[in-house]
Design a protein around this nucleic acid. Structure first.
Lengths: 239, 239, 239, 239
DNA sequence: AATGAATGAGCATTCATTCAT
DNA sequence: AATGAATGAATGCTCATTCAT
């Protein structure tokens, strides 16, 4: 490793030092840590993409807020799109981890379902950045996602979890309504996601703060109730 | 038709003519019609903003597809943001009109509610452009919307409609569950909106085409059933 | 900023009238008065050219502040340059008028010269707009001025006046120093003009407000003294 | 001279090569040299701002005449205004250097004052670009200058020099008239500056070429005489 | 592993001016 | 005498990206 090339040249401090020289010294006092550098870039990039969307985010802006330089972004991620993809992959990977930690197999079906809905609700509520990232990706027709090897092969554990709960519910009579697990996941996701994703327009039109603690509590029980009511009653009784 | 552009060059009509040339000819043969010009700009602008988001859309691109010039966009709308706002206002105004035409007051409450949900479902399904526009606006934290005089004063008829149906339902015993009309509107919107707004990411992950006719039909009845089941049953019976 | 509603709807103001209608009524209640229109344009144009220079001034801005429309500027003055020229001619014409009203022939030479300098001083001091216009014209190498029939044929009475005073001074022994009248006019102008034209840079560097009443009084007597001292003493006595 | 651009194509110098091509070749054969790049931009920018004023100068035009690209102007100077400011600062810094090299302390007061005036005269006469830049800055009310850290903190040596000469002159009786040094500097500047700054309008009106060698010589002695006459004689003797 | 300098294509916006009535 | 609509050519500026070291 060649790091000491700048130490043979002695730079004047205080008076006779350019900004470039100061930056160089700053660099020398830091350890080279590729992983930390990449992680630092990813963190800032996530903030910027979340804040302004893919087109709206600026590579210059991300670089400036980073501890390293713009060149490093291209060194590690190849392009703006590559960086965005890395941000997206990191975000999805984190959720996958969360889902697999739910451990609902040992609860009674109704309770397990209620817990699953609550967890989904809390996740979306506490991760508006992830919600925004998903919206941004939809604006771009999931083109980046489809191109990603990591994301396109993502194994969705949630469907297995739902399937298990449903089957146990049908078996013990807790649930009556027959429903496709993916459809049910969509229904749950819709309710939990929408109040975060559409927070701003809905809030502006109806003059409600969807992020308030009061509404949060009420909506959570509303959503749990609605899904459970749906599962407990057959469609035949409806008009 | 042979058109002489005044510079000694004659361009062929039909086959040997670019879009830009056709637009130019169209301009030359058209009379001044401000409303038509504005409407034409708005139409193209809507398509471009829907396709690429606010930051991603290009004024140059919009202008080129327009019958008029880039200069006129600024003449009528002042800026890219002004144009976007006009697009947004037009989109919302159209829905408001649709909502007020539903005429549900004379239906029995259950049927009225089912019809309202169906209409909302169909609207979002048939207007993915509007859905995308709302998503784009949420990415921008509804900042444009809040700045718009037209939109910030928009009178939301839907809440009155829901309130009426609910009250009639409670009166005749069709509905049991007490719910805030705005909350209910949110629940209905969430279900109808999500399957359009998140079509791409959801489709990519679960390998489902959410815009297929088969799923459309199934989801529609699913959503109607879920909301009605929710309204017909008190929360007390749930775990 | 949104100027047009962008929806083909005419926007009513307070009393049910569009902007275009209001403008039309305004026009109808005004008499068609070409001279007043021209004078109004010239007044606003002078302000704008003085404020921002020739290149910096905007035809749109001038038109907007005018009682009439942009089209009228072109109707009456042909071009931005034509308008600027009209402004310049009006400004110079006004001074010429002032100079011819001085009536110094009947004063003793020393008094007459002192009065002439005072008047020049006061004129520049009270007409910073004219001073700026002359500076702007010099920035443009007097190209507009040279093209003007009115200005290029301007008969400069001031030289005759100075010649008369000088001759009477030499005759009665008040003045000794022989000097070319145009050179003397330049010396007087330089002193009076500079403290107005270079007010801003000089003020910024030396932290002095050259437009203050105190300095004004002091500089005036300083300049009168300097010119008179020069005229009363032969060059031979100098080193 | 034959120039090989390193790509197998040999371009003729003088006849068969445009300026743009020459610049491009120059770029390809040049190593990265930030200082040279900045200096080159500054040189061209000075010419353009001097020629057309701040508003009249075009960044595109400056860039095209530069050895580098428009992008680099923004890389180094941030904006058109930043570039103009750098031009202004460089111009003023150069004069400050000249002023401090006059070395008048060892001359007798009258001779020193005459030399100072001559030097000021020659400076303005030989640097019409600087004079124009000052005029342009006054047109803009010295707003750029006031914003400049460099210029607002500029230490004006000229006042100390004048103060020294005056005091020595009062001491040995060469000068009688008491005058504020800044006022005297203004008087000297006014005379030297005006004949350059107002060369064009004055020349147009009085049909004189103020830049001719003959007038230059005459005006120089005129101005020296006038200032010295002023300093040698008390104000009391004047009318 | 890391970087300051450099870039071309493109970006939103504005300019003085003219057209059709 | 007057005007709202329209325009082409620029104008200042920014973008993601690459070069040379």
């Amino acid at each position: 490793m060649i790091v000491n090339d700048g130490q043979g040249q002695t730079q004047e401090d205080g008076q006779g030092m350019t900004k470039a020289q100061a930056a160089k010294i700053d660099r020398l006092t830091r350890k080279n840590d590729p992983d930390a550098t990449k992680e630092n870039i990813l963190k800032i990039a996530t903030e910027e993409f979340v804040a302004a969307g893919f087109s709206g985010a600026r590579v210059d802006e991300i670089a400036e807020r980073t501890k390293t330089s713009k060149r490093m972004i291209y060194y590690y991620f190849g392009s703006k799109e590559g960086l965005y993809l890395a941000v997206l992959e990191q975000a999805y990977t984190r959720i996958r981890t969360l889902e697999s930690e739910l451990d609902l197999e040992n609860m009674p079906p109704v309770q397990a379902m209620a817990q699953l809905i609550s967890s989904t609700f809390d996740h979306d509520d506490q991760n508006p950045d992830f919600v925004r990232l998903v919206c941004i990706e939809n604006i771009h027709r999931a083109e980046h996602m489809k191109r990603s090897v990591v994301l396109s092969q993502m194994n969705i554990a949630i469907i297995d979890i739902i399937t298990d709960i449903l089957e146990r519910g049908y078996a013990d009579g807790s649930f009556v309504r027959r429903v496709d697990p993916v459809d049910l996941h969509m229904m749950i996701s819709a309710q939990c996601f929408f109040r975060v994703s559409n927070r701003h327009t809905f809030g502006a039109i109806f003059e409600r703060d969807l992020s308030s603690e009061e509404l949060k509590k009420r909506h959570k029980s509303l959503i749990v109730d609605a899904i459970l009511a749906f599962l407990r009653h057959p469609s035949s009784e409806l008009a």
